[in-house]
């Protein structure tokens, strides 16, 4: 399965990069969102997959029954999802304010700070 996922991840990265390279501010935002999906899925995939065994210790047991999905990458991805959410919300607000301030969503028209 990891093979399929490896290509899904590559596809997501490709889509994200393509969108990042657009001139449109809105499209770039979509690129950023895709980028975080890709990264999260990547962490999940390279930590090796285990079908259907959540890392939850059964009631009364002391230990996780093997095999189980690796809990650590899950925790990392959770943290990363949450952070991406915060970042995304901010980026959206930034895009909104930028559009309101500059009157355009064409990134090529936003070169004033480099002149």
């Amino acid at each position: 399965m990891e093979i399929v996922l490896a290509f899904v991840i590559g596809g997501l990265y490709a889509a994200a990069v393509y969108m990042l390279l657009r001139r449109s501010l809105v499209k770039m935002l979509i690129g950023l969102a895709l980028l975080s999906h890709a990264a999260n899925l990547l962490i999940f995939a390279v930590a090796r997959l285990t079908r259907g065994r959540p890392p939850i210790i059964s009631l009364g047991a002391e230990d996780l029954a093997s095999p189980y999905a690796d809990p650590l990458p899950q925790a990392l991805i959770l943290t990363s999802i949450v952070i991406s959410f915060g970042v995304m919300a901010f980026a959206l607000a930034l895009a909104y304010r930028t559009y309101r301030t500059t009157g355009t969503d064409d990134l090529d028209a936003m070169r004033g700070s480099d002149r």
Binding site: L32, L35, F90, L94, T98, T102, L107, M110, R111, S113
Partner: peptide, 19 residues
């Protein structure tokens, strides 16, 4: 205005770095 133009670039490239 300048701030927004700069911030867009700052944010985007740094997010790419984080990713």
């Amino acid at each position: 205005r300048r701030q927004m133009e700069g911030a867009i670039k700052y944010v985007t490239l740094n997010l790419l770095s984080s990713a």
